[in-house]
Design a protein around this nucleic acid. Structure first.
Length: 205
DNA sequence: TCTACGATTTACT
DNA sequence: GTAAATCGTAGAA
């Protein structure tokens, strides 16, 4: 058997833990998007945790349950996707147990497979470093929109995550989350995780 | 109904 | 550095 390229698909147990753990451990995992049988793959290099009813930065703060936030109340392992600024989609991974509305925003990735298809979807990207270095850009490049909201990442074949057999070791650092100034005392929580110095992150520090 | 605004990106000064 | 683009969502009226 060819072990070199073997990967293990992430199952429900991976996702059904605290969003802070999931956010950190998602770094280095491979995000796979299949379109017309073609694989678009990136390595996750930046995430942010949004941590349920207590977190003023979270859409589900105070257990706010609406059409938009509904999927966050499902057990971990599905996608929470929302539309913002009238033009961008954001991809989140739902974490924790049912009725614990936590999620992890996927903020940036390193393109690995299907790079030409990503470039075709993002003609404005000046280089491979700008293909997936932001949550809106990542969804644009991977053709992720509301049709995938609630998608089962452990069972589906169009969008899922894999753990590569040989992980590249990189130091992890953390900082404040981006653009949540409205979150008052929660805005400064260091719940953004990323690989220190990695050229594919949305903003260096 | 009506209004304000956003877990962003891009172009421009 | 600043501002425009562009529209669904949430909350108020």
């Amino acid at each position: 058997m060819f072990l070199g390229g073997m990967k293990l698909r992430l199952g429900y147990d991976f996702y059904r833990r605290d969003a802070l753990i999931v956010a950190k451990e998602l770094l280095g995992m491979h995000l796979v998007r299949v379109i017309d049988g073609k694989r678009l793959v990136c390595r996750i290099v930046e995430t942010e945790a949004y941590r349920g009813p207590e977190d003023k930065g979270c859409h589900a703060y105070n257990n706010r349950r609406t059409g938009r936030t509904e999927v966050m109340f499902r057990p971990g392992g599905c996608a929470y996707i929302y539309f913002i600024y009238g033009m961008y989609y954001m991809l989140n991974i739902v974490a924790a147990a049912a009725d614990e509305p936590q999620a992890v925003l996927i903020r940036a990735g390193q393109p690995l497979e299907g790079v030409e298809l990503m470039q075709a979807r993002r003609p404005k990207a000046g280089s491979r470093y700008q293909l997936l270095n932001g949550p809106g850009k990542l969804c644009q490049a991977l053709d992720i929109d509301l049709s995938l909201n609630g998608y089962d990442l452990a069972a589906g074949e169009e969008l899922f995550l894999e753990r590569p057999m040989e992980q590249i070791r990189e130091p992890i650092t953390q900082s404040k989350r981006i653009n949540i100034d409205y979150a008052e005392e929660w805005k400064d929580k260091p719940w953004r995780f990323y690989f220190k110095g990695n050229p594919y992150v949305s903003r260096p520090d």
